[in-house]
Design a binder for these strands. Structure first.
Lengths: 223, 223
DNA sequence: TCTTAAATGATAGTAATACTACCAATCATA
DNA sequence: TATGATTGGTAGTATTACTATCATTTAAGA
């Protein structure tokens, strides 16, 4: 896969499609590195312009502001994960096995299989862990939701919810369980790294997060 | 309870204890209202000074910056919740009933039983839902964690984790389950309000969140 | 009551942020 | 060769996030 993934992203998530141009891809690629380095709060378009050898004005031609860029990045990531799941579960018969694979994909360490693409998946995943919730925890969430800014995330959540229902048709609260798992995957990873007192998962042990998710999901589903 | 709750907060969470002075209490009380109104990103000390009829400089005498204020508010809230749980489960014999009460307290709509106090609990709870994760999702999380900024949250999490162990001694991943529940309580509430496609809980139905948490926790614990 | 220290007010100033506007230069294409 | 799209470069503005200084008020103790 990797090199030939081209995700179509909601065109409200940019002013001008960054994937289409050299500069656009550079902006997106470098933004991931920079946000990872300094955190979203200290990240600015001015600093991004410097590392891209371009100007602030040029970046503003692609994205209205840094929050829109964050929406773009998160949507891209969730779109990628959703694609990976779709591709992966395609030929798996057992609903329980499908669910297992889904949990693995949403919680495992992503290796950079995007050779030749404009962004490195492993760094993107790092910023997803610590910054993705900021994409929706904003005052104008309802406005940006209206034009479909969270479509990729919802798709993914719906897919997981369906997989839960297939593995356990009588399971209650399937949607809530799906979103809880999706959030928990990142959250427990963050806690393991920074607030270890809040989790049983150990640092740099993403496989333990997968195990945790499996453990709870198979107790929650009901046939 | 209410009127006589005096929580001792880590003194690294302020420059000068706001609870001690008239102005300090006004700052804290109004900050909650203002953050609720405009969201944490648009909230500034200048605007806060205006509604408090004071100056920016005076506010900076209490808090280093708005993030420290957020840490203060969240710590105060978790301290309060922890106190409420301690007080509530005191005379309950059954571990399962204790656990039930805990889930209720962390997920139910808080009524403002703090008459005569400087802040309104119901509004504080609203901002906890949408802003609390921002207290730890910052680049310098490790530094602020070192001086105990998250002590109240950890205490609460540990208490819940223990309650889980008491209700189900063989339960695995008790800490992770505790933090997951604590986060899910707010998260599902936020989704119900703003992104209903991600949850089974309906708007303004906090009792459904409680039911959801109960449903899953009693499937997860093992005797 | 006088004195002193603490708390607040008032004002000013600085560096950085988050943009917007404008025009010139380049580049691809018809 | 003309045209339009893309980018560069510069400038400017309002706001943010502070810090510093000094005057005034208030509270508390001798």
């Amino acid at each position: 896969m990797g090199a030939f993934v081209t995700l179509k992203i909601n065109d409200k998530l940019y002013l001008k499609d960054p994937v289409e141009t050299e500069l656009g891809r550079k902006i997106v690629g470098q933004s991931v590195v920079l946000i990872d380095k300094m955190g979203f709060e200290l990240f600015t378009f001015k600093k991004l312009a410097q590392v891209c050898d371009t100007t602030e004005a040029s970046i503003y031609r692609y994205f209205e502001n840094k929050h829109q860029l964050l929406l773009f990045l998160t949507s891209w990531y969730w779109g990628y994960i959703d694609f990976k799941i779709e591709y992966g579960i395609n030929n798996i018969r057992s609903p329980r096995q499908r669910l297992k694979l889904i949990l693995k994909i949403i919680s495992e360490q992503q290796v950079n299989d995007l050779n030749g693409t404009f962004l490195s998946l492993d760094v993107l995943q790092k910023i997803i862990v610590s910054e993705a919730t900021k994409s929706y925890l904003v005052k104008n969430v309802d406005d940006i939701n209206k034009y479909g800014a969270f479509a990729e995330y919802k798709n993914l959540c719906t897919r997981i919810s369906k997989a839960i229902q297939e593995a356990g048709p009588k399971t209650r609260y399937a949607k809530s369980i799906a979103s809880m798992l999706l959030e928990a995957a990142r959250q427990q990873q963050f806690f393991a790294e920074h607030l270890p007192g809040l989790t049983d998962i150990r640092r740099n042990r993403t496989e333990e997060t997968t195990q945790f998710l499996e453990h709870i999901v198979f107790k929650l589903i009901e046939e």
